[in-house]
Amino acid sequence: MTTESTQADTREIVVSTRLSRGIIAGVRIGLALLWIQNAGWKVPPNFGQGAQPTGLYQFTSYAVEYPVFPPFSWLVEHLILPNFAFFGWMVLLAEASLGAFLLVGLATRFWALVGLAQTMAITLSVLNAPHEWHWSYLLMFMANATVFATAAGRYTGLDGLLRPHWQSSTTPISRLLVRAS
């Protein structure tokens, strides 16, 4: 067996069995449920801002109280906390969209990158806060990275079904979706 054929066989193992495809789909759907559930406790209009901070405001303020990366703490203190209603809505809409698109497996690789960026923001906010388990955030990074690397929407997701349509189309949106899937 040549090196090339061995490498090809190794690559194929990832997706060649029903079990492998099912596991990849399971990781994608599990990650979607993570974002869906966590969109649930971002409560407008105050998002926890008040005399006794709770929820998203409290967790975001941990970036200042228990700094992880000083430039990010400065950004939170001087830009995000003073404009918290806008920031709260952006977080809610981003996480609701993450859950929505990952659940059905649409534009999955793009949304996995958004998930990585959001995980970075969460990590920089709460990593040093009391009672946080650092592996939670590392696992979130790994799950989003896995969904990106395996293009997980192509297995029992809409990306797998619709990608041939997009590939045969010349419209800009189709080309964009081919890249995003």
Partner: peptide, 15 residues
Amino acid sequence: VDGSTLSFCLGLGIG
């Protein structure tokens, strides 16, 4: 309802 209901309906609707 909350943000999780929004996310779920959005995903099924677009899909």
